[in-house]
Nucleic acid binder design. Structure first.
Length: 568
RNA sequence: GGGCCUGUAGCCUAGUGGAUAGGGCGACUGCCUUCUAAGCAGUAGAUCGGGAGUUCGAAUCUCCUCAGGCCCGCCA
């Protein structure tokens, strides 16, 4: 039952206003003042009456079996829902599995991660991955079919730099010989290049020359490139596995480079008069003055990143039947994506408005911006390991007797929960100032707090089973304690949070909804001893509430790609 | 020079037109022989960057201004 809608209908009947207009005006009042509120200011002019009078009038006239009471408070009409109908309605929809509205259909490609093969993943990539993974899950929950895509940036002069350093100073070492994770080994070469080039600027030219050889298909360079790329990608895949990142499609810049699909689009744009040739032969897309023109091909005819991107995007819509394509890329590319989408609009692509940029703020350190070549990054593997050790220490404090295997499993789940939740709980577009020591805790507004609430709920059901208590999902209408009602209301709000997250391209509404649910659950847990309920009927009702809480929390956590831990 | 984003207690943050600005960290008080204390209950802490305007009503909308970040045709 949609209470908001039902209340709006009652108000509409009395006032003659349209139902959907009333719905948009209904709000949730501050604590203790009811479940819904209608502000009467909005009718004052039309009815030529004082808001307070309208409120009094409405409060006196409106009644229904699902409403406990209606109160006029100044210019507001406050509605208190009947606890039993609220409980029935909310818990039923949760057990029916219909508590999230599937509002969308079709298929969508979501690109995220997009690493370079000259360095390992860092905490910035983890923010990208967390958003990519979670938003993909969210898209599926609202009804879309999702193709997760990764594009490996495996070509370009920056890739040559780590190759050059290895060729000149690597002394034939390998990740194996050094006992090093292979992507870290490649990353070390990139740092080494940066150190060497500072003293020997001519390396810069050598790297460019190497790129020319690569483009010409020089056998030796291609062999080196393949070897080092494999190291980089194999290492990253380990990190993806550890973190839980999954992809259905892998694209490679190098392959795309060979296709030259972008060049065809450039021909097309010139023919249509949408692109123009500059004095030195470069090709530019002519765009609105606010977003400037965009160079798509160098004067010497060589390709730019944008050249490739034109082809990549076209191929995606050609080869996959997409209703939408989403790029998860940091906010420094906001302007670029505006231009890219505008170019497709100019070219008359009917899918141009189906391109979406999920922009997010950069992760900076308290010490400043992260720079791989200077080695001032928080490495993804190191971070996960460090937090895992902290989680392990917490587990060992509590449970000495667990097997090593179980301890490790829990520690990983908890540490990833802490990291992912930290990266998702705030508005995606805000920057994160990351302090590894201070940022990741297991208490307060954290992933482990949610996991803990879930584990506690689970433990009630487990104990009930162990004590051979009978339990059926029923008697929902007996849930009349304030703590119970507050929890149920938070459960009900979860679906709104899902919708909000989808609209706002950010996971924080879901994250905060889960925090509120966990908070209300913990409070309920503290106040009401479920297993010591007075009657079988009440036990049924409360166990139902506990189970419903677990269902919603598990759904929410799974969207955020966080493991709901059974025991913690 | 221009564009986009951000500014809410010591720190982090939610809230995009409505009532007393909601959380967390940190600080301080209590609560484990009672379903897991990674928890609960409470206290203190806020000129919502500043100014003007629109409105019955502004953290929220408009304009100006200050501060930080990112970006602005041949980098990826």
């Amino acid at each position: 039952m949609d209470f908001k809608d039902s209340i709006a209908k009652l108000i509409a009947k009395e006032t003659g206003q349209k139902v959907n207009e009333i719905v948009s005006k209904l709000e949730v009042p501050p604590k203790g003042m009811g479940d819904f509120a209608f502000p009467s200011f909005t009718l004052a002019k039309a009815q030529k009456k004082a808001p307070n009078a309208i409120s009094n009038d409405l409060a006196a006239k409106i009644s229904a079996d699902f409403i406990e009471k209606v109160e006029a408070k100044g210019p507001y009409v406050n509605f208190f829902l009947s606890k039993s109908s609220l409980s029935e309605s909310v818990l039923k929809s949760i057990f029916d599995g219909k508590f999230i509205k599937k509002t969308e259909k079709g298929s969508v490609m979501l690109e995220y991660s997009g690493p370079n093969t000259n360095k390992p993943l860092h905490v910035g990539h983890l923010r990208n991955s967390s958003l990519g993974m979670a938003f993909s899950n969210l898209l599926e929950v609202v009804g879309l079919k999702v193709i997760r895509a990764n594009i490996i940036n495996d070509r370009g002069v920056h890739i040559m730099k780590s190759m050059l350093a290895y060729q000149k100073f690597g002394e034939g070492k390998t990740p194996k010989s050094e006992g090093k994770k292979s992507d870290h080994f490649v990353g070390d070469m990139y740092v080494l290049y940066a150190q060497k080039v500072a003293k020997n600027p001519e390396l810069e030219e050598e790297a460019k020359a190497m790129l020319a050889k690569w483009e010409a298909g020089d056998k030796e360079i291609i062999a080196l490139w393949k070897k080092m790329n494999k190291w980089a990608i194999d290492g990253m895949k380990e990190t993806y596995d550890l973190f839980g990142s999954e992809f259905e499609e892998w694209f490679y810049e190098s392959e795309n480079f060979k296709l030259k699909a972008g060049h065809k689009i450039i021909e097309e744009g010139l023919a249509k008069g949408v692109f123009q040739k500059e004095d030195n032969g470069a090709i530019a897309a002519v765009l609105e003055p606010e977003i400037k023109n965009k160079i798509l091909l160098r004067g010497d005819g060589t390709a730019l990143y944008a050249t490739n991107d034109l082809g990549v995007t076209q191929n995606r819509f050609d080869n996959f039947k997409l209703d939408k394509c989403i790029w998860v890329v940091a906010s420094e590319q906001d302007f670029y994506f505006k231009q890219l989408f505008a170019i497709f609009e100019k070219l008359g692509r009917k899918w141009a408005d189906k391109c979406q940029h999920l922009s997010y703020g950069m992760v900076n350190l308290t010490s400043g911006k992260m720079k791989s070549r200077e080695g001032t990054v928080v490495d993804a593997d190191d971070l996960i390991e460090e937090i895992k050790q902290l989680a392990l220490a917490e587990i060992e404090k509590r449970y000495e007797n667990l097997s090593e295997k179980e301890k490790n499993k829990r520690a990983l789940a908890i540490s990833l929960g802490a990291i992912k939740f930290f990266l998702l709980k705030n508005d995606a577009k805000k920057e994160i100032l990351f302090d590894p020591k201070a940022s990741l805790a297991f208490e307060g507004e954290t992933g482990p707090y949610l996991q803990y609430a879930y584990a506690r709920a689970n433990s009630i059901l487990r104990k009930a089973k162990a004590e051979k208590k009978k339990y059926k999902q029923k008697n929902f209408d007996l849930l009349k304690e304030n703590k119970e009602k507050e929890l149920i209301i938070e459960l009900q709000k979860f679906s709104d949070a899902v919708a909000k997250s989808y609209e706002q391209l950010s996971l924080h509404p879901i994250a905060h909804s889960l925090l509120s649910i966990a908070e209300k659950f913990n409070s309920f847990y503290h106040e009401v001893n479920v297993l010591k309920s007075d009657s079988q009927e009440l036990l049924n009702a409360r166990l139902s509430l506990v189970e419903a809480t677990m269902i919603v929390m598990k759904k929410g956590l799974s969207i955020l790609d966080i493991v709901a831990i059974e025991e913690m």
